[in-house]
Design a protein around this nucleic acid. Structure first.
Lengths: 124, 124
DNA sequence: CGGTATCCACTGAGATACTG
DNA sequence: CAGTATCTCAGTGGATACCG
C-alpha cells in the first residue's frame, strides 16, 4: 500500500485524461485565459476544464490570477513549483513514443498512428 | 491531439489504479503466480486482476507462462521490454514523494502520510 | 487454481441552463 | 467572460456464481 501511495500521488495528478492536456498547453504557451484553454482543447467541457484547473491549483501546479474587470478575466499559468512536472511529463512522453513504435512492430499499422512529429518535444 | 496521444499512451498503460500495483509487485518479486498477486494486492478482485494482466500482456509488458498441470498454474513476469518501464515508474515515484512533502508544507499534516520510507526505491 | 460470465451499484463526465 | 448547478447516461469496477 505504501508503495502505491507514492506512485499513486503522481498518478492522481496526471490522470484524468484532461490534466495532461491542460498542463501541456500551459507549458507551451505560458499564460492562458479560461476561454483560450477551451479553444485550445476543443473537446473539453467548461465543467471539466474548471474542475481540473481547480485541482491543479490546489496542488500548487497551476496559478490562477483573477482580474477585477467587467467582463471578468482570469489567467492561468504554471507555478514555479509546477515546472517540476516537466521532466515527469517528458519521461512519460518519451516512453509513450517508444511504446507506440513497439506496438506497431508487434501488431502492425492498425493503431491510429497519424504519423505526426512528436510535438511534446516543445516542452523541451 | 497529437501532443496528447504520445503522453496519453503512457497514461493509458499506467492509469487504471491497479496496473501500477501489479507492475510494482512483479518488478520487486520477479515471477509471481496469479494467486500470489491476489494476496499481494489485497483489495483487487479476480476480475480486475485478470483484466489488467491481460492488458499488460497485450502491451508486451508482462509475460504469461501457463503450465499444463492439474491444478493449473500460471506465472507472470515482466518482459525484457517491460523493464523499460522502470525509469518511468521511478521518475513518477520520485516526483510523487516530493509532492507529498510539498503538500504537507502547504496544507499541514492532514494527508494520510504514514511516514513510511519510500519502498518504491526497491525498484532501484 | 485460474479464470469467465452475469448482474448491479456507483461514479465520471457530457449537455444544458443559469449567475455574478 | 468565467464559472456553477442539475440532470442524465455510459462505462468502470465490485460481488457472486460457475467452468476447465
Amino acid at each position: 500500500m505504501t508503495v502505491y501511495c507514492k506512485f499513486g500521488t503522481a498518478l492522481d495528478i496526471l490522470t484524468g485524461k484532461w490534466k495532461s492536456l491542460i498542463l501541456l498547453r500551459l507549458l507551451n504557451n505560458g499564460t492562458m485565459r479560461f476561454s483560450e484553454l477551451q479553444k485550445a482543447i476543443p473537446d473539453i467541457s467548461k465543467k471539466m476544464l474548471a474542475q481540473q484547473l481547480k485541482e491543479l491549483e490546489y496542488h500548487d501546479i497551476v496559478h490562477r490570477e483573477v482580474y477585477a474587470e467587467i467582463p471578468p478575466k482570469v489567467e492561468y499559468s504554471i507555478t514555479e513549483y509546477g515546472q517540476l512536472m516537466k521532466p515527469v511529463l517528458q519521461t512519460m512522453s518519451d516512453w509513450g513514443v517508444g511504446h507506440m513504435q513497439h506496438m506497431q512492430k508487434l501488431y502492425g499499422e492498425e493503431d491510429e498512428a497519424e504519423a505526426n512529429p512528436s510535438s511534446l518535444r516543445k516542452i523541451e
